[in-house]
Write a protein that binds this DNA or RNA. Structure first.
Lengths: 183, 183
DNA sequence: CATCAGTTTCAGAATGTTTTGAAATCTGCT
DNA sequence: AGCAGATTTCAAAACATTCTGAAACTGATG
């Protein structure tokens, strides 16, 4: 049997799902994954694999993969219903928490490896043919490293599990445009 | 004739280019585009299409497309050499300015259209069958809209042409972890 | 321990993106 | 205008990602 009793979705909900799906690329996830997340988010209900398959018209494999990936990203969790062997899934409801998880994941997956490569490049630039190397090149690599480290640090601060990122952001926005220089 | 006299590149430079290329997905551009940018950035020189083709071993069409796209993004500019009909390209050297351009482009291309869709969804949710609609659904759409608006505003503030984003970021990092709540 | 509902896996198919290369276009010079 | 070097375009090919569906697996139950 297919979906749990009455899983119907208003047309407007589906448009939300589609809009969110198109946004997938921004978050670095596939369209379907984003749609699955949107579906869980907008309904606010616990849905099972069959519900997702049916509503989004995707295959069982795809639904299973996407749900699992969302759980790995930490923005969807598994829940169980008493007396039901099926697994159900719910999306994190707090937008800021969703954002946190995504930012942290992406830094870990993408910025950190890049930084690792850049450290290697810097180390190769430094010791050996130090005299023959254009000092500007070193400076540029350094600048890039500094910038990415700043990004990672900011990400941690903003998106860290303890950080009240929202307030920080708000206060940042509220401040006046110019900030007194510290140098 | 191929590249301008002596365009040679140290092995370490190429590793920088590759590392940066892999990062392309984060910035939402293709690997090659990212590599072209990295090449221009790390050499700090003005290179012509042929230089890029040769160093990156890509086709003329691809080099042309990638360079043009980078110019569109505002992180590479065309320069001319007196007595030379060729066009040369240089990358913006300030990391923060590069970041600014990218953030602004991405907000314009990705967040703004999504927000537009969400406004439509909200408007569809409000007037007609207002009684039949789960109020929580409206709240969730609102929450998402608010969040994205905050993102766009933050992006503008941080990455705006006038904003001293770096100082803001630094001061943010320097602050103590907890910020007094404003409510 | 055989069965069954439910879940995951994975090779191949479908789809989407990027690259090529040659032809068309442009630009500035004589 | 006619030419020559430089650049852009674009259809087809190469490549990469995502999706499907059927088979394999899991683990609770009688």
């Amino acid at each position: 049997m297919a979906a749990s009793e009455s899983v119907r979705i208003a047309e407007a909900h589906m448009r939300f799902v589609e809009a969110w799906g198109r946004m997938g690329s921004v978050w670095g996830i596939s369209r379907t994954m984003a749609e699955v997340h949107a579906l869980l988010y907008i309904t606010g209900r616990a849905l099972c694999t069959d519900d997702v398959m049916e509503l989004l018209e995707i295959s069982r494999g795809n639904a299973s993969m996407s749900l699992r990936a969302l759980v790995d990203w930490g923005i969807v969790s598994r829940v169980h219903k008493r007396g039901d062997r099926k697994e159900y899934f719910v999306a994190e409801q707090d937008v800021w928490t969703i954002f946190r998880s995504i930012v942290r994941q992406r830094i870990k997956r993408e910025v950190d490896p890049l930084l690792a490569s850049l450290y290697e490049v810097r180390d190769d630039l430094a010791p050996a043919s130090a005299t023959r190397t254009d000092p500007d090149v070193k400076a540029r690599v350094e600048a890039m490293i500094d910038f990415l480290e700043l990004c990672a640090a900011l990400g941690d601060r903003f998106a860290g599990p303890t950080g009240p990122g929202l307030q920080l952001a708000a206060s940042l926005l509220a401040r006046n445009h110019r900030v007194k220089r510290t140098d």
